[in-house]
Design a protein around this nucleic acid. Structure first.
Lengths: 236, 236
DNA sequence: GTTTTGCAAATTGCTGACAATATGCACGTG
DNA sequence: CACGTGCATATTGTCAGCAATTTGCAAAAC
């Protein structure tokens, strides 16, 4: 058992404690997910059961179980008797996912507008202010985590875990598209203006305006990928 | 192989063709899902691997794989070393799911408003008219499938499979709550009035009004379950 | 030269068996 | 009589192995 845990600890340090609360399949699933989202496997690439099992130091059983979960989450594609492949996200798919993400984020804004506390408003204001600074300095490294924190604060602030899980699931799936390098950081100057519109709607607790602002903000992000490359692997 | 297929054909007739395109795990998953949603297993009830495997005529492997997929879809709960249980939906959970469903349905209405064809509008008008008839006759048996068709037409009409899958996933999860018999058909008179509001917004292709109408329509459905019983198994 | 055929290797799908953990119950103890 | 202890049973978690399918490649046929 000790040797197995060691071999699992390829990418995690606290694997020992993890296994007390999660089955090996769950750990394996997390590892494979990390590998996929890290971009180590390109979309459309095949995931060999045995290779993954050996790499993680487990047998094929847990790996196969993980595949089912990852498939249900839209991260891999399964073809009977052929194998499992990293889900390919076409531009059409990305647009569809973006639309859902926009609807979910708008919904989060709307729900939050009805229950937001002054403390939450303050936290969001702080984030927007920090993004203003990072934006004026063209500091993408600083802007990115703040941007994520802003969105996360809104989504998790609704206290609706189903909404949060679904939303982050869409974000994860979009990572498969981002892995192609089509989503660049461009346009983050206008992005914070939109953040302010959202914040204003939340500040006055206007659900209607909050949805609209949140929805359009994500749609603006979608517009960027739509106008960029076609998402195909290097057309000649 | 023949005997296995026969034993699978417990609830399905065309299992032979199915196995050509789907793995045994997928078939087993569908069967277990049917069993769960049929209410044969109560929420919170344990799903014994061996019992299910024997019942479906397969070994535990495919059953365990199915559990992972069902867990990812929010239909079962998994506790390490303890087992798998039918997901329990508290009233709080149901409210959360309803809010997400409302957001998704509103989003579907909004997206559809921008691209709806006259043929689609005609089909929706027909459904609303039929529901008017069924409603005036208090014919719940006729009203229900029409109601589902109306919602499905809107959601699938967006041509966004991600949106549709996510929406129907929420509906499925709500079935776990419905199984307790808390959602009664009451209020279906006002329901069709709301349908008409949605239809009007789609007819004039007003995305803003369409979202609002769709969102509030589902929220009205949520209000019914909130005001009904508390969702606990028989309080004394 | 291109296509088709046939075999060998690799891979998937599934099953049965073994180790680890949890459960239930009888028993003893305070 | 309540409560904890220890063992037998049941169940879960994982693994190794076998059948079925696919894949890759070489040889033959056109």
């Amino acid at each position: 058992m000790t040797e197995r845990l060691q071999s699992i600890a390829i990418s995690g340090a606290d694997a020992l404690d993890v296994l007390r609360n999660a089955s090996l399949s769950q750990v394996v699933q997390g590892e494979i997910e990390k590998i996929i989202l890290s971009g180590a496997f390109a979309p459309g690439e095949k995931l060999n059961e045995k290779v993954l099992a050996d790499r993680l130091g487990v047998s094929r059983g847990p790996v196969r179980e993980s595949f089912q979960a990852l498939h249900a989450r839209g991260l891999v594609e399964m073809i009977p008797n052929r194998g499992v492949f990293v889900q390919q996200i076409t531009r059409h798919d990305a647009v569809a996912i973006y639309d859902v993400r926009a609807g979910l984020f708008g919904t989060a804004c709307r729900l939050l507008a009805e229950r937001i506390t002054t403390a939450q408003i303050g936290a969001l204001k702080s984030l927007v202010a920090q993004m203003d600074v990072a934006g004026s300095q063209r500091d993408l490294e600083a802007y990115f985590p703040l941007n994520i924190a802003f969105h996360s604060a809104i989504v998790t602030g609704t206290n609706n875990s189903v909404l949060a899980d679904t939303y982050f699931g869409m974000v994860r799936r979009l990572h498969l598209f981002r892995a192609r390098g089509l989503v660049h950081g461009g346009g983050f100057e206008s992005s914070n203006i939109e953040h302010r519109v959202i914040l204003d709607a939340l500040d006055v607790r206007d659900p209607h305006a909050a949805f609209e602002a949140g929805f359009l903000h994500v749609q603006a992000g979608k517009a960027r990928i739509v106008t960029s490359g076609d998402g195909s692997p290097a057309s000649p």
